[in-house]
Design a binder for these strands. Structure first.
Lengths: 144, 144
DNA sequence: TATTGTTATACTCTATAACTATA
DNA sequence: TATAGTTATAGAGTATAACAATA
């Protein structure tokens, strides 16, 4: 099988395309996809997530999460709150402004992603999502 | 739909896993996946590919290809040959040693990739490949 | 004038290691 | 002793711009 049909190569190219399309769509909102992912997860949580939880869900190193939260906090879209249960832990919670930004950004991000997925039917997108989820579920490094 | 089910996010995580698994498998052969892709394409071509062709197929900037070919040439696995047709063009061709390395590396790379794709059946892998190929085919930036 | 290969630069992402404060 | 967050650093990947040789 020729190299251009290698699943790893195709995955890497496709991933790059989706990231670029999403970043382009998010640019007008002052976001990149990494910061956006943190903002989304913070908005979805009820009590806020610890940075450790964020690192686990996103499969990032905790030190990377620090930077992402710093950037979102600097513009006032999330804030760090002390955890009532553990004084080491900081909960990342969205501000009201952060929720608004996230809502507007989500519309553009979805549109950008949809365009990058092109002619795939809804069923095909669901199939792709399901296959990807099964690959991701294998990740051994993610200790969460 | 929660962020963790976002296709872009899942694709990005899955891509990272496949790249890491492949790099780990290739490490004992002194290769990383980017260099390996150039070596594979050079081995598959009959007359050698120009660096421009390589950049087009791999969706990389021509300046990135320079670095990759430099590294493979330094260890004697490929060489640059002048094109008979165009004196600006350099054809990248594998050496005999390069072909041997590629053959051995391919075995390990395939095994590493297969492990990273885990429980996906052959049919599911084919379906994944096909879906990815259709997404990649959309890439507007690839002028090839 | 346009294209191939090249050099240079800057920014993002990835990967580790070490430190602090708490547990 | 282990964990959450933080700082620091180095390497790999991505994105542009400019230049020389050639078409």
């Amino acid at each position: 099988m020729p190299f251009v049909d290698n699943i790893g190569f195709l995955m890497s190219r496709a991933s790059g395309q989706l990231v670029r399309a999403t970043n382009a769509a998010l640019a007008e909102h002052g976001l990149r996809v990494r910061q956006y992912s943190v903002l989304c997860l913070a908005c979805e949580s009820v009590e806020g997530l610890s940075q450790r939880d964020l690192a686990g869900v996103l499969a990032l190193d905790p030190s990377q999460v620090v930077t992402l939260v710093d950037e979102l906090a600097r513009v006032g879209w999330v804030e760090r709150r002390p955890s009532p249960a553990d004084r080491r832990t900081k909960l990342v919670v969205p501000t009201d402004l952060g929720r608004e930004v996230r809502e507007r950004a989500a519309v553009r991000a979805e549109a950008g992603l949809a365009a990058a997925l092109g002619p795939l039917s809804p069923d095909e997108r669901a199939a792709l999502r399901s296959l990807l989820a099964r690959v991701v579920a294998l990740d051994v490094s993610a200790t969460t």
